[in-house]
Each structure stands twice: as structure tokens, then as C-alpha cells.
Write a protein that binds this DNA or RNA. Structure first.
Length: 595
RNA sequence: GCCGCUGUAGCUCAGUGGCAGAGCAGCUGUUUCGUAAACAGCAGGUCGUGGGUUCAAGUCCCACCGGCGGCUCCA
């Protein structure tokens, strides 16, 4: 969204809605700064932009803000808004701005960073701010807002700088929209994977091993079902699964360059009489080592080495987050070694396979970022340009849109990232494909070409689900725990109405289990209604209720978790239905694709 | 790692200087039931950990550990 320095030539109420909202949020940030400066005259104020769902403003204050302060600040803001004063803007020479903001070090730093000769100067009432503009005409137009929370934020996002206090506000055009957002956020909290993981008995995180999930039996079923699915695809797409060590001499990462760059994020230790060892944080060096141990010709390529073993990274303590940011995880990782001629096809095949997986899982379209050459890079610019162009083209050919992330590529090559949002709207990277122009050379990898000469293979890093932990976290939220039948830890619950039906229920379980279905019998001393409720809450796809009538007819009354009583069906028909749903990996209608 | 908040039963939470509580879950008994919660009883806590203040600390102070929300980082 762009804004021009204020002219107010288009009346505020005639602007497009998203521009109006942007301006409301921006003006509210100014009103917030005004309130903070009233409360703390010695406050230093930094920046205050509009953001998704609202706005924030960063301050350097004499003391930490409390929740009570937010209430008081909000009240002061409402006074300013009730006054409904004009918001005026003008361009002024830098020298004049430096005089106005002479006691505001952050503003002075911003002025120094502006390339023009003049800077924007905005005022309402007694408040003035350095600002590029984009405001409502009056403070009374800012809409419905509430101050949400206070958080720490480094000045200019750099951890070497001062830590400021960031006040976040929520703001929407109307009270109804603000309320709707709060309701939606509360709903999202109910499907938070950390909560569902416990309620559905899938996994939990425990202080005994921070950042390393405990998979309970049901969670392990889900984990393994995903891997089984991927193995099926690997067969179809000609991947070869390997298992490489967990523990390596750090010599390995000295060759790959990871030791120098990321040694601090690895778990390293030094046993007696041995050199330094480390637990692997990624598979690529091990795969290169495996490649190096063999002799390959062009006829053996492409070689697609896949691995599911566990990885460990010593993430900084403050960043751990449920299953989406962990220390111990597995990836659906693979490295593809190929010839230059095979390269385009391999990249295209990755997108084809990704699209297939996203469709099978009902994930909807991800946000795709193409991260290009960073400032520190290796290799030739021409190669980078070619690789970036190729990735862009293949993304489009796969029918996806992408956004450019200039300069965010890895030092060894450009990468494509697929991002999905969790229940709270936070974006997480799942899939990635990276072109590696460094590692094969570092490891001295070679294959014999059809010319009889040794060549360095090209290398691709790729993962589709990404980390299984992160995927399970995001997918649990995406589905609210209503996994499609083929992934559901318990696919059907048999519910005997009275004790005399337990034996028949057990027969059903055995029959279905013999066909590989995951079925349990609820033998608890509860009424049928309670058993149904429990199965519903556990998101079991089907409930098979059995009483006298069903036992008589060799049938069960089928109920699906969407709430429907499907009526009595013969056992054979039930079995066929469940197997069909499993083998086609049918999506439950609750998991319909969504953006 | 940094800023702020936070930690009481398996879970959700009440208790704000004076005898550790509730609901759900669990266990036992009764009940044998037709599509989202039967009834009764019992049990369950070194109040995150370690120091300190106080006649007295779940409650106040300090440190550490974990969690939450951000920031930063993400091979």
C-alpha cells in the first residue's frame, strides 16, 4: 500500500476501504504516541506504523508499561479522539526537523536516514511527529480500536540496539469488525495445536526436555501415517531412502561450512580420547558424505536421497514454540544430485510433487516466496540469475503465484519457501527447495559423465512437509484436529449400548482391524450419549453404535463426526466404506481446502 | 539471547500475609441405558526450584528453571 504526502485532495470518506483502514491505523498510532508523551513527558518515541489488524508504536520509556498503563493510555487516546482535531502534514527542511526533534534521538536517526532534502512533519493538537504520511483528516476518524499488549522490540530490529517497548493496538473500521476479530482470535486459541495436542492425546512438550516433543501413541500413529504416505510417493517419484548417523565428528561440518557459521546452534560435545562430536542439525552434509563414498556415473543420476531421521538444533531458548519451533525434529528431507541437463526437470518435479501433497492434505494454496541472491554469496552472478529465473518460471508453470524476497537466499543459492499460517495467523515455512552451488564442490563430489570425464553434480535441497513436527502443529490447527480418516489415530469407535453388546462390538473391532483399520471399542461404564460425546470430542471420524437391533442384523448404526446419524449399515458395507475412504485418502469435508 | 507477563491437583482456574479450594478428568460402587455429559462416594498438591524478609509466605523480595506474547535468528 502506498501513500503520498498529505494533500487531502481526495476526501477521506471517498478513499478505497483498505486505504481508509490503513490511514485509521496510522493515525491511531499517532494518537497513541500523543497519549504516551502526555503520560511520560521524557519518553523517546521511535516508529509507529499500521500493521495487519491494527498498529503499534515503539517507545523508550523510564519504566516498563503495565496492563493498567494500557487502560490509562487507551482512555487518554479516547479523549484525543473525542476532541476530533485536524491532522495536518507538511514537508519541511531537514534542518528544521532536526531542531523540532532535537531531544528525540530515534527521530534524529530516522531523519539522517532519509535521502530527500525535506521530511514529512505531521501534527494534531500539540502532538507532532516525523512521518511520511497517510492519515485520516481528523483524530475522530480512527475507527474502533483497543490497545492489545506490550512487547519488547529492538530499535530497527537489531539485537545490538536498545530494546524498546512496543505497544500493539487492534483497530478496525467498526466496532462490529473489531468484535468479530476478537471472536475469531478466541476461536483460533481453541484450536491451538498445543491445546489440541493435549486434548486429543497426540503429543506434549515437557520441561524435562524443552523443545523436544513426546509423541503419545495416537500422535505416533499420525507421525508414522505421514511417513508411510511419503514413502508411497517416494516409490512413485523414484526417491531412495537412506539412514545416516545421528552423531558425527565435527570435521564433517568443517567441510560443509556449517561449523563456522552455525556451530553455536549445534549440540556439540567432546568425549575423552576423541575429537569433538556433534548431533546432526541437518542431513545434507551426511548425504554428501554418502555420495562421496560411492562411485557414480551420469547413468546413476539423478540420485534422490531421502531421510526421515531426527535432527537437533540448539535453538535459542526464547524462540521455542510448541511443535512449530522445536529443538528435536524430523524432516521429509531429500537431496537431489543431478546433471545440468536434468536440473530443470528435477525442479519442476518438485513443484509437481508439492502440489500433489498439498492437494492430498487439503492444505490450500501456500504463500510462496522466492528468496534471491544475498549480499554475501558465492558463485557467479550469471548462475544466480539463471537459477532465479528458472525457479520463477517453474513456480508459474506449476500454477502458483510468488512474492520476491530479495537478498534472502542462502549464501550458496536461491531458495523457494512455501508458507502456511497457523491458527493465530502466524506464518510458518513448510516446504522449501534450495539450489546449492557450494556443497558439492566443498565435498569434492564427482560423477563420470558420458564424456568419460569427472564432473561436479548439481545439488538441490528440498522438503515438502518441512519438519514433521511443525507440519503436525500447523495441520492440527488447520483441521482443528479433524484429521482425514487415513491420518486419524482412531478411525472408528465401536459403541456398545449395554454390556451385553460388548462381545459383538469386539467382534466388529477384530474384523475391521484385520483389514488394517484402527478401531477401538468404548467399554466404559457410560451411557451411549456420553460415549458418543467422547468420540466426538476426540474427533473420531466414525462411531459404530451397536445394540440389540444391530447385533441381530450383523450391522452397526453409523454416525460420522460431522454430526450425522447415517443409520444402520451391514458390516460388510461399513468395512468397504471405510477402506475406500482410507485408500483414496479422501478429505473429510471439514478439511476442505482453504486459503 | 533480549523485553514484558506468567507458573496452585492430570486439565481449566479461584485463593493477594493467618487451617490449600472448585469444576472436569481419574478411581470405586450403583445403574445396562438408542445418537454430544447417569447418580453417589473416594482419592488427588513439597503452591516450578532454591534462597531471603516475617511470629507466620501460595501470597512480599532475590536468583534460577519452565511456559506465554513479542523482538532477533532460522543452515
Amino acid at each position: 500500500m502506498t501513500t503520498t504526502p498529505e494533500t487531502h485532495d481526495v476526501p477521506f470518506d471517498q478513499l478505497p476501504p483498505d486505504e481508509r483502514l490503513f490511514r485509521m491505523r496510522h493515525s491511531a498510532a499517532h494518537v497513541l504516541a500523543e497519549a504516551v508523551l502526555e503520560m511520560f513527558p521524557e519518553a523517546k518515541y521511535a516508529i509507529g506504523p499500521p500493521v495487519e489488524n491494527g498498529f503499534y508504536y515503539d517507545f523508550d520509556l523510564p519504566r516498563p508499561l503495565t496492563p493498567e498503563d494500557l487502560v490509562a493510555l487507551e482512555a487518554r487516546m479516547r479523549v484525543s479522539i473525542a476532541r476530533d482535531v485536524a491532522i495536518r502534514g507538511e514537508q519541511i527542511p531537514k534542518a528544521q526537523a532536526r531542531e523540532i526533534f532535537k531531544d528525540q534521538p530515534y527521530k534524529l536517526e530516522l531523519i539522517d536516514g532519509i535521502e530527500d532534502d525535506t521530511v514529512g512533519h505531521f501534527m494534531h493538537g500539540d502532538f507532532e511527529d516525523l512521518c511520511r504520511g497517510g492519515h485520516t483528516e481528523r483524530t475522530g476518524q480512527v475507527g474502533a480500536f483497543t490497545l492489545d499488549r506490550v512487547a519488547g522490540a529492538y530499535w530497527r530490529g537489531d539485537e545490538h540496539n536498545a530494546m524498546l517497548q512496543r505497544v500493539y493496538g487492534l483497530l478496525f473500521a467498526t466496532e462490529a469488525e473489531l468484535e468479530a476479530f476478537k471472536v475469531q482470535r478466541a476461536e483460533a486459541e481453541r484450536r491451538d495445536h498445543r491445546r489440541l495436542g493435549r486434548e486429543l492425546d497426540l503429543f506434549h512438550l515437557d520441561p524435562i526436555s524443552p523443545g523436544s516433543p513426546f509423541y503419545h501413541p495416537k500422535g505416533a500413529v499420525l507421525y508414522n501415517a505421514l511417513i508411510d504416505y511419503l514413502r508411497d510417493l517416494y516409490l512413485e517419484y523414484d526417491y531412495s531412502e537412506v539412514i545416516t548417523p545421528q552423531l558425527f565428528s565435527t570435521d564433517l561440518w568443517k567441510v560443509s561450512g556449517h561449523y563456522q557459521n552455525f556451530g553455536g546452534d549445534m549440540f556439540l560435545f567432546q568425549p575423552e580420547d576423541e575429537g569433538e562430536l556433534g548431533i546432526k542439525p541437518m542431513n545434507c552434509p551426511g548425504h554428501c558424505w554418502l555420495f562421496k563414498s560411492g562411485h557414480y556415473s551420469y547413468r546413476d543420476l539423478p540420485l534422490r536421497l531421502a531421510e526421515f531421521t531426527r535432527l537437533h538444533r540448539n535453538e535459542r531458548s526464547g524462540v521455542l514454540h510448541g511443535m512449530t519451533r522445536v529443538r528435536s525434529f524430523a524432516q521429509d528431507d531429500a537431496h537431489i544430485y543431478c546433471t545440468p541437463e536434468q536440473f530443470d526437470t528435477e525442479v519442476a518435479r518438485f513443484f509437481e510433487m508439492s502440489k500433489r501433497i498439498y492437494a492430498d492434505l487439503g492444505l490450500g494454496d501456500p504463500v510462496i516466496r522466492l528468496a534471491t541472491r544475498p549480499e554475501k554469496y558465492i558463485g557467479e552472478i550469471a548462475d544466480w540469475d539463471a537459477a532465479e529465473a528458472l525457479l520463477g518460471r517453474v513456480i508459474n508453470e506449476a500454477g502458483y503465484e510468488y512474492v520476491l524476497a530479495p537478498g534472502e537466499g542462502a549464501f550458496y543459492g536461491p531458495k523457494v519457501e512455501f508458507h502456511m499460517r497457523d491458527a493465530l495467523g502466524r506464518s510458518w515455512q513448510l516446504s522449501t527447495i534450495q539450489i546449492d552451488q557450494a556443497m558439492p564442490g566443498r565435498f569434492g563430489l564427482e560423477y563420470i559423465g558420458d564424456d568419460g570425464e569427472a564432473h561436479t553434480p548439481l545439488m538441490l535441497h528440498r522438503a515438502i512437509l518441512g519438519s514433521l513436527e511443525r507440519f503436525i502443529g500447523v495441520y492440527t490447527e488447520h483441521t482443528a484436529g479433524r484429521f482425514p480418516l487415513w491420518l486419524a489415530p482412531v478411525q472408528a469407535m465401536v459403541i456398545p449400548i449395554a454390556d451385553r453388546h460388548v462381545e459383538y462390538a469386539e467382534q466388529i473391532r477384530k474384523t475391521l482391524r484385520a483389514r488394517g483399520l484402527r478401531v477401538q471399542v468404548d467399554t466404559s461404564n457410560e451411557r451411549m450419549g456420553a460415549k458418543i460425546r467422547n468420540a466426538q470430542l476426540q474427533q473420531v471420524p466414525y462411531m459404530l453404535v451397536v445394540g440389540d437391533r444391530e447385533q441381530e442384523a450383523n450391522a452397526a448404526a453409523v454416525r460420522d463426526r460431522a454430526g450425522g446419524d447415517l443409520g444402520a449399515m451391514p458390516l460388510d458395507a461399513i468395512m468397504a466404506k471405510l477402506i475406500e475412504e482410507r485408500d483414496t485418502r479422501a478429505l473429510s469435508h471439514e478439511v476442505a481446502p482453504s486459503a
